[in-house]
Design a protein around this nucleic acid. Structure first.
Lengths: 209, 209
DNA sequence: TAGATTGTTAATCGATTAACAATC
DNA sequence: TAGATTGTTAATCGATTAACAATC
């Protein structure tokens, strides 16, 4: 079995992917860890260590081929596959996410939008009519769904997550302000916006000193 | 000068704050690091170490007073002060953030919403008429603004950030998919949604193995 | 071949956990 | 006072950086 790769490394991969995309757009064919480190403000050593968790993508004396390395990191992250996503909670945030065209470019396709508020039923957001949560089991019978984005109030989040697991959806992109990480068999990625704002607030107060 | 506190610690503070709020709602008056560690799935040692970066908030043989500790962490994070926020980019995401009532409860008050698209001018979002970016300098003369949320396409983000700095706004909550961390005199907190989704995607593929 | 740059091992640094004396 | 639990020092663990032999 492969050794587990730390989340610290995983968190850096999307940033490498983005910089390599920009280099590609600029027509740059190859880059050394040293040049990349200068652009990204990280050490060359860290870049090489990070990449070598997944294999040797470079060549001594040459560096890394930009297109190739980007493709490989894309494969590692899974952005070259298509992931079907549903959004649970069609309020402002849920609708904003459904409208985010960019996600589709990196393989995440939003195919359904659900809420419990009957007033929203049938409202169309980016070609998708909002459905009622009761319709979800039937929807899942007919559609392969990998990820559910949870954009609903915290008091509904845990029960909804458990329901999703029981229906076979095993990955949650969690915007609700609760911890779901302890649910058996679920992969969770949290986006806690108010936490992020509080961290900013702390760093502002430090900056003033 | 105080020794710098690591971002690893700062990132955990909002979670302590949230758990303490829930304990308070449940009418729980005091808690030991050990009991809290069991609830939060972190070590008691880490809790005590984290808190003692900021002072001794507990009492031997007793533990921590929930209300007091929560208040203190709130002060550290600055949620007991009011921070005026403007949102630059009044698209779906910007409007969703402007509508997020919860932020106000933790001290972040959205007082202005700006865009460059003339079609949006005057549209009212949560009592705020969308203004044009050209109006920003005048607005800042009349309003004290601490934080700008950047919810605009990446190609506009850097120039806008530089403009904000020149106008005296020194903190950015950055939703654009660019790095602004290298701008002199700016405090930046990033929310890179597509990065987050890619990390989820990676963890899904690992989970399947 | 000589120069450049990787892949990888070793050294350092920082963060987490364990242990326990202090003390409420 | 005895028991509980903190605050803090010491030990461990993991992540980052440095160094360099391998090799293109």
């Amino acid at each position: 079995m492969d050794k587990e790769i730390s989340q610290a490394v995983i968190r850096r991969l999307p940033r490498y992917y983005r910089y390599l995309g920009e280099l590609l757009d600029d027509g740059i064919e190859r880059i050394s860890s040293n040049d990349l480190s200068a652009r990204m403000h990280v050490t060359a050593s860290q870049i090489r260590q990070d990449l070598n968790n997944f294999g040797g993508f470079g060549q001594q004396g040459y560096g890394y081929n930009v297109a190739y390395l980007r493709e490989e990191i894309g494969n590692i992250l899974g952005v070259n596959d298509v992931h079907n996503v549903i959004v649970i909670g069609a309020g402002n945030l849920g609708q904003a996410i459904a409208n985010y065209v960019k996600f589709e470019k990196v393989g995440f396709k939003i195919i359904g939008l659900f809420d419990v508020n009957p007033e929203l039923e049938g409202k169309v957001v980016r070609d998708l009519p909002i459905m009622m949560l009761d319709d979800l089991p039937k929807f899942l019978e007919n559609n392969k769904v990998e990820i559910a984005a949870l954009t609903l109030p915290k008091h509904n989040a845990k029960a909804t997550a458990l329901k999703l697991v029981s229906l076979g959806v095993t990955s949650i992109w969690n915007f609700a302000h609760v911890d779901l990480d302890d649910i058996e068999g679920l992969v969770v990625e949290n986006v806690h916006l108010s936490d992020s704002l509080m961290q900013l607030s702390y760093n502002i107060s430090q900056h003033k000193k």
